[in-house]
Structures are given as structure tokens and as C-alpha cells.
């Protein structure tokens, strides 16, 4: 086993630190070392998007990067969306429009949708579909998700 290295980063506004092998995947570091199990692993090869987080403000796959690569970075995971016990408008919209069933892709879908709305606050339906095509969902047929993202775009704070 290789020597452990220290990884320091800011997650959801909180400074965090952990020691892990240099080869440890960021998603495993988040889940196992920091206890943030909201971010899910669906394929480990960067296609399904369940592990999507925001890395320095941009959507990134945490399953195809190493924890050491995120040293010093600022991360946002699904756990950082709700504030003071209140759901984020995007989360509210997913609930309102049945944008989730089993919930497994949902963390990645939420973070991807947030990234979409931050870069394009008034997307067309086609742009929403294009934007969320980075994440695979096998339950919803995507319709509820498209409806939710459209509704969130119209809500103040939807791209907060």
C-alpha cells in the first residue's frame, strides 16, 4: 500500500481534511473518508453521471478523478443544496414534478441541473434535455426531470 497523503478541501462551505492513498477516487474519499454518502457511484467510468458534484463551481465527475486532484478545491455536493432545513428551489421542483423515483441518480441530476441553470438560467426544453443528458436515469423517462428543471428556472433562486 502506498503512503497516505493528506487532502484538504472545502466541501459545502466547510473546511475538511482526510488522509488517503494517492490512488483513491474522489467519490470514494467523499463517501468513505468524509461520510458524504449522498454522492453515488453508478459506473466508475464517467458516463452515468450519478457521482456529479460541483468542483470550483463547475460540474465534474467525482468517479474519474482522484481525491488528491481536488486538494485545495472548493466542492459542492448534494448535501450542500438545502439550507437551514429548507429545500433548494431545485429540490422543491423535483419533488413537485416527480423528478425522481428510486433517487439514485438524483444527486448527480440535481448538481448537473444546477450547473445548467447557472450557465443558462432560461433554458428551452431542448437545452434542458441536452444539459441533463450528462446523467442517466432509468426510472423517470426524464419527463418529470425536464418539467422540474423548467419550473426551477422560473423560480427565484432556482440557480442559486
Amino acid at each position: 500500500m502506498a503512503d497516505l497523503v493528506t487532502v484538504r478541501l472545502k466541501v459545502n462551505g466547510v473546511e475538511r481534511e482526510g488522509r488517503c492513498e494517492p490512488r483513491k477516487l474522489l467519490v470514494d474519499f467523499l463517501r468513505e473518508d468524509l461520510g458524504l454518502t449522498g454522492t453515488h457511484v453508478g459506473c466508475e467510468h464517467g458516463i452515468c453521471g450519478a457521482c456529479t458534484i460541483l468542483l470550483d463551481g463547475q460540474a465534474a465527475r467525482s468517479c474519474i478523478m482522484l481525491a488528491v486532484q481536488a486538494d485545495g478545491a472548493e466542492l459542492m455536493t448534494v448535501e450542500g443544496l438545502a439550507q437551514d432545513g429548507k429545500l433548494h428551489p431545485l429540490q422543491e421542483a423535483f419533488r413537485e414534478h416527480h423528478g425522481l423515483q428510486c433517487g439514485f441518480c438524483t444527486p448527480g441530476m440535481l448538481m448537473t441541473s444546477l450547473d445548467l441553470l447557472r450557465t443558462n438560467p432560461t433554458p428551452t426544453d431542448e437545452e434542458i434535455r441536452e444539459g441533463i443528458s450528462a446523467v442517466l436515469c432509468r426510472c423517470t423517462g426524464y419527463q418529470g426531470i425536464v418539467n422540474a428543471v423548467r419550473a426551477a428556472a422560473r423560480t427565484p433562486g432556482g440557480s442559486r
Binding site: 458524504l36 454518502t37 449522498g38 454522492t39 455536493t77 448534494v78 448535501e79 443544496l81 438545502a82 429545500l87 429540490q91 423535483f94 419533488r95 425522481l100 428510486c102 433517487g103 439514485f104 438524483t106 444527486p107 440535481l110
Partner: peptide, 10 residues
Amino acid sequence: EDRRLLTGRG
């Protein structure tokens, strides 16, 4: 079910 699943607490 949604609140827990939307907040990463599933």
C-alpha cells in the same frame, strides 16, 4: 420518500 432522497440522505 423525496425529502431524504433529494438531500442525499437515502
